[in-house]
């Protein structure tokens, strides 16, 4: 058994809502469980797709892995070490090994710096360079992401969306990461550019054996790029399986409903219900399955008691390498 590069154990992040006067908690504080007991692993060289609607805790999970946020409970282990416990001296090395691509195209690009300086800053963090070798390394990074070297002299504001994404990718690659957390790397790009960037990610992943956590709500892209997929709903993982399996035989009603909502869904995939409402408007039930308010199976089965009482269902294996957190997983029984 190969050791996973990243292991998430029971990771949770709760935010306090409705703080009392002057920041004092006056009791009866409401908790927003952005991430609630999430566990998964990423093997070396594997791409794990993390799918879910906006606001389900995907980004929060990513930020906890790169230690931008501290978890309320649980651990994220990178190469066996708890990322929260990395000592100050090892932090720089860790930051290099685990890189994050931000959803915001402009996030990584200081508008006041030339692309050359933005990249040079990242390169110099991990490597010593002379003027010539630095220039060579920058050209090398640019060719990795298929950008013309002339763009090095540009300011970020004069780049197109696709170019900005490539530059931020080059900046991430400059640190020679082993694990990349990619938060919606394709959103905010035109469709044709999406395909280019998706192919670029795929090529880079193969060529350098990078491990990816691919956070996205775009099922088609995730399916295309990932080896395995984890589906997240209101801070919990509700299903994990290989990409092919989860598309062919979704086990959780939510996964199935998500698939229904993509325009170009696979032929023959079983469709159960449609999603209504917005995650932000949903009252999270204190007891029972969190998904039941939108669940078609729950309605069809006549609101069974199992779904209403007790804790949220745990992930259970339904087939080899396929786990579902549902009392009535699809494609079972009948």
């Amino acid at each position: 058994m190969v050791k996973p590069i990243l292991k998430i154990k029971n990771l949770s992040k709760h935010f306090a809502l409705g703080r009392g006067l002057g920041g004092l908690s006056l009791g009866g504080e409401k908790l927003l469980k952005a991430v609630d007991g999430v566990s998964f692993e990423i093997a070396r060289g594997e791409v794990l797709g993390l799918v879910g609607e906006s606001g389900c805790g995907k980004t929060t999970t990513g930020k906890m892995i790169v230690r931008l946020l501290g978890p309320t409970a649980g651990q994220a282990l990178f190469e066996g070490q708890d990322v929260q416990r990395i000592p100050r001296r090892g932090l720089s090395e860790f930051r290099g090994a685990v890189q994050m691509i931000f959803q915001d195209l402009d996030a990584a690009l200081n508008p006041k710096m030339k692309v050359r300086d933005i990249l040079a800053e990242a390169v110099r963090l991990g490597e010593r360079h002379t003027k010539q070798s630095l220039a060579k390394r920058l050209r090398e990074l640019f060719s990795m992401v298929n950008l013309k070297p002339s763009k090095l002299e540009n300011y970020p504001t004069s780049l197109s969306g696709g170019e900005k994404r490539r530059v931020s990718l080059a900046r991430v690659l400059a640190r020679k990461p082993r694990l990349i957390i990619a938060d919606e790397p394709l959103s905010a790009l035109d469709l044709s550019i999406q395909a280019q960037v998706a192919n670029l990610l795929k090529d880079l992943q193969k060529e350098y054996g990078l491990s990816f956590l691919l956070i996205s709500h775009d099922l088609r892209m995730v399916e295309l790029l990932s080896h395995r997929i984890a589906v997240m709903y209101l801070g919990r993982i509700v299903e994990t399986a290989s990409a092919a399996e989860i598309v062919r035989r979704p086990g959780h009603p939510y996964t199935s409903a998500l698939w229904t909502s993509t325009v170009a869904r696979k032929k023959g995939a079983k469709v159960v219900g449609q999603l209504r409402g917005d995650v932000f408007e949903l009252e999270r039930p204190d007891e029972g399955c969190v998904f039941r308010s939108r669940c078609a199976v729950y309605q069809k089965k006549g609101k069974p008691k199992q779904c209403r009482v007790g804790a949220d269902p745990e992930l259970r294996q339904v087939r080899k390498g396929h786990s579902v957190a549902c009392h009535f997983p699809l494609g079972k029984g009948k």
Binding site: K63, V66, L68, L91, S92, R95, G96, Q99, M100, F102, D104, D106, A107, A108, N110, E121, A122, L125, G126, R171, V172, R175
Partner: peptide, 9 residues
Amino acid sequence: FIEAAAALG
């Protein structure tokens, strides 16, 4: 912006 700079290391 600042988060991205910190994440870079």
